[in-house]
């Protein structure tokens, strides 16, 4: 089946099997390898991307289902070479170690902060609970999200 998917503002068209998982389309057909696969059971969230702005696990969606949709992956976060606040936050607060869960974590956080710009620590912990991290113990990820929230608030007010 022919699908056209807009990823980070660019259209990718290809003829694919219906069973092709969206994550494989992103990684292999579009060659954007920042989106990772960490499990088979829609448990870990390493494959999280934004589909029309909403975080979804791209290993639990078929590429054909994303036909005509707009997807944001980690490669689409920085704009004009400038890191997004969430990326800055992960860097400043040491929110990543091996980096494997980081793209999914950041995309989940970006969508969450849009919904809830001033979250409490507990709200952040619940918001990222569909994304597993094995290295950091989450402490610094929570701080990274708080950092991004503050940066975004400053930008809004400034």
């Amino acid at each position: 089946m022919n699908v056209t998917i807009n990823i980070n503002g660019k259209e990718y068209s290809d003829d694919v099997e219906p069973r092709l998982l969206l994550v494989h389309f992103i990684r292999e057909n579009a060659n954007l390898t920042g989106t990772h696969v960490g499990c088979d059971t829609t448990s870990c969230g390493a494959c999280t991307v934004l589909v029309d702005g909403v975080p979804m696990k791209s290993c639990t969606m078929f590429a054909v289902q994303a036909n005509g949709k707009s997807i944001t992956t980690v490669e689409g976060l920085a704009q004009n070479g400038k890191l997004a606040p969430i990326q800055e936050g992960f860097h400043e607060k040491h929110g990543l170690q091996c980096g494997f869960c980081t793209p999914g974590m950041m995309l989940t956080s970006v969508a969450f902060l849009k919904k809830n710009p001033h979250p409490s620590e507990e709200e952040i912990r619940w918001a990222i609970s569909g994304n597993l991290c094995r290295c950091t113990g989450y402490v610094n990820i929570v701080e990274a999200v708080q950092y991004a929230a503050e940066k975004m608030a400053e930008a809004q007010n400034g």
């Binding site: 969230g45 975080p55 979804m56 990222i128």
Partner: peptide
Amino acid sequence: VADPIVRNR
């Protein structure tokens, strides 16, 4: 139900 990302779908 499940987790926040799963619930989006």
